[in-house]
């Protein structure tokens, strides 16, 4: 039992150390390390459909990771690295789409639908209110009529 346990523990330790990206891309400062991790998660692998380059093992993802590492080590900013990649691989490489005449609808359509629904709800509530006050008036008239009828008796 003890042997099995130690075996499992040693396996877990070696597995976790093998999966750690720190060994392959060593950094001197935590900021650089954080920027690198952030960038490799924000950049999309151009070969794969929906994997970031941190996650992918495709050849091109390895190259992009190496380049990102090199640029971060050179002290380049986050925006510089993203621009560098977009320049070469197009907008596909970033998960944040730019706003242009085509993509602007991604933001506009939900807004338009929300406005339309709001308008419809507003209109409905108004007409419901109107009919409600109408019945009130009818009720009043009925009371009045009853009173007059009573008087007449």
């Amino acid at each position: 039992m003890k042997i099995l346990l130690s075996l499992i523990i040693s396996l877990v330790i070696t597995a976790s150390s093998a999966a750690s990206p720190k060994d392959k891309y060593p950094f001197e400062t935590i900021e650089e390390q954080r920027l690198f991790n952030q960038l490799t998660k924000a950049l999309r692998c151009p070969k794969c459909q929906n994997q970031n380059i941190a996650d992918s093992n495709a050849g091109v993802a390895v190259d992009l990771k190496n380049k990102t590492y090199q640029l971060v080590k050179e002290g380049k900013s986050e925006q510089y690295v993203i621009d560098f990649m977009v320049q070469r691989y197009g907008n596909f490489v970033t998960y944040q789409p730019p706003i242009n005449s085509v993509t602007v609808w991604l933001w506009l359509i939900p807004l338009l639908i929300a406005f339309m629904l709001g308008f419809i709800v507003y209109k409905r509530s108004q007409s419901a209110h109107q009919s409600a006050s109408q019945t009130d008036i009818e009720q009043e008239m009925l009371e009045k009529a009853k009173a007059i009828l009573k008087q007449g008796k």
Partner: peptide, 12 residues
């Protein structure tokens, strides 16, 4: 160093 491939936007 595959810099030219990267500049060309090669994916494979």
């Amino acid at each position: 160093k595959r810099d030219l491939s990267l500049d060309l936007g090669i994916t494979g």
